[in-house]
Amino acid sequence: MNTTAAAHSTEAAPGRIVLLTTSHRVAPGLLSWPAWRALHGADRVLCADGAHPQLPYLREAGVTVDEAAPTAEDLVAACAGGRTVVVVATGEGEPALTDGLARLAGSGRVSMPELELLPASYDLPGARLLDLVQVMDRIRAECPWSSRQTHQGLAKYAIEEAYELVESIEAGDRGELREELGDVLLQVVFHARIAEEDAEEPFSVDDVAGGIVTKLIHRHPHVFGDESATTPEEVKEHWLRTKAVEKRRASVTDGIPLGQPALALAAKLASRARTAGLAVPLPRGEGIGYTLLSLAAEAESRGTDPEAALRAAARTYRDAIRRTEGV
């Protein structure tokens, strides 16, 4: 090929457009190796957002970034001659630009450059929890209702949401289950955000998460330590043993909330006694309370949750009432 033909071939080469996306949930500058290679190898790097959090780190690494928002036509022209142009996408992902490139490609009027979408950083599992924390921070600061809430005032909502979660589980509704899990999670994050403002003993959602991580690791020595457990019963023994050491409780009944529903309370007491190997006879007395206590203990010994069993029966009763009413 002669020099003139080679020059013509170079000019005709359509080049390459790389749309570089990053996650705001990952610290700026922590990019993948393919992303850094593309940035350093590009003929030009563009970014429409002069305040993009990645820009200081790119420039520190020796990457020249032009603050520009080219149209699709401008970008295709910039790639002429086989050049590579990297576009550092803004948080919205540059929809106007990508739509314009799609229209150009569909028109058949121009020779399109090679198009590549290159994720430079990825969300780790659980990354959306960071969004929840940020949203809660803003709501706490700016919402007239949320900014005045206290632990005491929100307590009833935690109970309500927990019951709604149980109802969605028992109904087998996956969509409702996902929503109710979110509502329960909101209560945790809300209380943790309020706790940050305590003058004497503040703590944050990170302290809450750190505490439960430490607890889970300590109570699962068969996973994170040298002990072994091959059955659910052995796992439960590990859990109860380590919990007893942590809490330094004098009685197996310590830590059982007496304010929970009565059937659940009775079953929990029976479970603790049985697990501890205590042969404690049920108290005898007259009245429906003692009868219910006996039934709850019997259900627990059979592996049945008396609360769930009674709710199921109550729903059947409700349906019968509605049929009688013609509803």
Rank of each mutant, 00 (worst) to 15 (best):
A195L: 09
S111E: 11
H8N: 14
Q152E: 09
T253D: 10
A270F: 00
A27N: 12
Q54V: 07
R315H: 09
L130R: 07
A309E: 09
A69W: 02
R148F: 12
V110K: 04
L117Q: 08
G175D: 01
P232Q: 09
Q54Y: 05
H220R: 14
A171Y: 02
A276G: 05
H151K: 12
A51R: 06
A262C: 05
L258C: 13
L130C: 04
V133P: 00
S168L: 04
T150K: 09
H191R: 06
E233P: 11
V65Y: 01
L31Y: 03
G225F: 00
Y122P: 01
R109I: 03
K243D: 01
L181S: 05
L58K: 00
H191K: 13
A77C: 15
S146L: 06
L293H: 07
R59W: 03
G81S: 14
D198I: 02
L295H: 10
G100N: 07
G153V: 03
H24A: 13
V189Q: 10
A279H: 01
E300I: 04
T230E: 11
E197Q: 15
E73Q: 11
E307T: 14
E164R: 01
P14R: 09
V65C: 05
D198Y: 05
I139W: 07
A77Y: 04
T316D: 13
L132I: 14
L263S: 12
P14V: 06
E237N: 09
R83D: 08
N2C: 11
P144H: 08
V63N: 06
Y57I: 00
E164V: 04
V26N: 08
L132N: 10
E167V: 15
T275F: 15
A42R: 02
L165E: 01
L46C: 14
A69P: 02
E237W: 02
A141H: 06
E234T: 04
Y157M: 13
D123K: 03
T90E: 08
V85K: 05
Y317L: 15
A262M: 12
L130D: 03
A80K: 10
V76P: 10
G225L: 03
P70M: 08
A273D: 11
L39M: 10
A320R: 07
H222L: 02
H238A: 07
L265I: 09
S168G: 03
A158C: 06
I256M: 05
Y157K: 14
P261A: 11
S111Y: 00
R311G: 04
A309T: 02
L31G: 03
A155N: 12
I321R: 15
E160N: 06
D74E: 13
V189T: 12
L310I: 03
G182D: 03
V166P: 00
R178F: 13
A297G: 08
G303K: 06
S32C: 10
A270Y: 00
